[in-house]
Design a protein around this nucleic acid. Structure first.
Lengths: 218, 218, 218, 218
DNA sequence: CGCTAACCGAGACGGTACGTCCCGTCTTTTG
DNA sequence: CAAAAGACGGGACGTACCGTCTCGGTTAGCG
């Protein structure tokens, strides 16, 4: 939430690295992340190697390790951008908003680089708190905006009641996020069943029905 | 749906192995699976090696490869047993049944061998249909029994209406399973927030509220 | 010279093994040796495996190990027969006899099963006295007959003088054998130059010239 | 005869390795060859393993494979140095020169690292032209200098006639080399009889007697 | 405008695990 | 009771990546 201690391995624009010496190439960063995504598509997470990424990016392996501690962190950064493509369609109904986001998310999970990378880094993160933190910061928390924005609009339209207090509001948003993200991932990657409009409609009905039961009172 | 052709790498009771030659040791199987679970606890998925499992089990590496194609399949079989420990408490209310199962599942996901292994094999499976199938057969589908049994009892108690037809019944059960499993996993492993009785209560309320909205409505 | 102590691993028709139980198949022996030679031709010594020989011979691996201690001994027996094909042509001149034997020997060393096996077992034998003994018994000493017979005939024709005593006769025969066998092997397998009639002629001249120098002088 | 194209697996002073990147450690080379010889003494060829050599040399297995294609080539290089210890004594008689070299060579063949390695690589080479070439380049051809030098000196002393032409000279030198090397190896390693001064004297007499017969007459 | 510090590519390094192959032994059923 | 079949413990193989370490050489900014 505040001043994270930055190691030399954090990426987003470190102001205060050293003032002297040759600066790191900015192009290299972009080339590396693009190479990582390309390698993910072709090879998938388990066969992706640092050497391969380096040679695709036209960069030495040392350059990779100077900037990221390892494969996991590199991949988190490489796929984080993909998730920012998700957006609330801005329809005039909460139902449509949710259905659309669900379908967008499912479409993203169809992309091989997202599918293979997402579960892999989550798996790595089960034993690595720093990585878990990085995933939350770079990917998960950024997408909560969709929940917050959707609720805001729905409340503005009167489709949803306002929350009594901020804590409840946050708790509810987290729950909704876990339900949506968790269910869609499970449907797509574990059950391996299609997430089509029909399914999205039913799931949205369940979610909103449950939501009104929860928010209306015990 | 019926008699699948079994390769030499399938485990559960192959009837028609060869009649001649020295038979495979049944003890070895048990020792290997136990060793795998122990290694998962100590080392976690990424540092677990086939050699290590072999030596823990007092078995040659070749014996492992004779029975499982690789690390992923071995681990699926090793952790599948853990999931069979889940059971419906047999309370007199659907709400309590769900809450209990959610808490049991969350407790299972606290165990390091389950946590590290489950996500890892799902990650591997994103590129390997055979592995995905194995996970569904050995783990996922077996736990659907909890959903089916819980619903059956609730319907017997009149807490839930009967489904109009078998297809709808199956579709709804799948949905509920995806919602419960997906949400709990996401809460526990991605959001990394506690799954306590309070959260379970709220989640159950949402689920049941949504369920009545789905089954009653059009 | 005779009565070699026979272990259970000696082949040539052991009469008095056990009197009871199923007798060892005599056909198996021939099949195994033939399979060994075939495998040597196709694979060469280093890639020849006991399992492969067994399956070629339609025999279980245990049968092999019941009869030979290991690969080296099996191969010695398998190639020994090849060397018995060498024979003195029975010409009317010592020069021709030697040239012919040299060419026959070189032709044998062209055959892949002989070439690859001979040097390999000699190599193994550098650290294994029992094997060295087996090679001498089965292969080397049997071919000394050619030297002895050739000399005998030459002496009968008056081309060579009689030896003054038996010890000298034996020593000279050994020397000649070492010179012929060693030189031809070195030419063929190390220098990898052709052993043709021209070379054989020169070599024979050298040998006979040297021989007269040795036997005539002090 | 001229500039052979060198692969990355050739050892002796590659001039034009790549100019960039970390250079290969020269110490490692020496350590590896020494370790190989030590391992040969202790274990003999068949039990010598690449892993063992690596750990003796304090080097990773990959470093071995980066420099030599396999065990055979490594051993050829490791023992080649031993053969360079042979030298012409510089006596004032051809007879003595030959006898001495024969005894030196036999003494070398007594050393376990030479004995076990030499035959083994020759055996491997029967199926591998590249290896055969390597043996000739690194070992065999280098020792022909002894024959050439010995003859040169003998001719200077008038003990031997000059050859009529270069081709004949080369052919004769090759023959002599095959006879000496082949005979001594056969005596020492196959017949397993001692190469003592007595035997060396007789053999030398035979060789020189034969030589004069060959060079004088047609 | 030349120092100098940090960057860069290349690639060798010590390690470790992989999955395969073969060894020689053992435990079955079949003849 | 031998033979076939084949699983067993063991161990070496050669390969692939890991993350680190030298190299020679480049590229800023500061002095």
């Amino acid at each position: 939430m505040v001043a994270v201690m930055r190691s030399s391995h954090s990426r987003p624009v470190d102001a205060p690295t050293s003032r002297t010496g040759r600066p790191r190439s900015a192009e290299a960063d972009a080339a590396i992340l693009a190479a990582t995504r390309a390698a993910l598509v072709e090879l998938g997470w388990p066969k992706l190697t640092m050497s391969d990424v380096a040679s695709r990016a036209g960069v030495a392996k040392t350059t990779l390790y100077r900037r990221w501690p390892g494969k996991s962190e590199l991949v988190v950064d490489a796929v984080a951008a993909l998730f920012d493509e998700l957006e609330l369609p801005g329809s005039d109904s909460l139902v449509t908003d949710i259905e659309d986001v669900v379908l967008q998310f499912a479409a993203l999970l169809e992309r091989p680089e997202a599918k293979t990378a997402l579960m892999a880094v989550v798996a790595e993160a089960t034993r690595d708190e720093a990585l878990r933190q990085r995933i939350r910061t770079s990917i998960v928390d950024r997408q909560k905006r969709l929940v917050l924005l959707g609720r805001e609009r729905a409340q503005a339209r009167g489709e949803l009641p306002r929350e009594p207090d901020a804590a409840t509001a946050a708790r509810t948003a987290d729950l909704i996020f876990d339900v949506i993200a968790g269910t869609v991932v499970h449907r797509a990657l574990v059950s391996a069943e299609p997430v089509d409009r029909q399914w999205a409609r039913t799931f949205t009905a369940l979610l909103l029905g449950g939501l009104s039961a929860v928010t209306s009172g015990p």
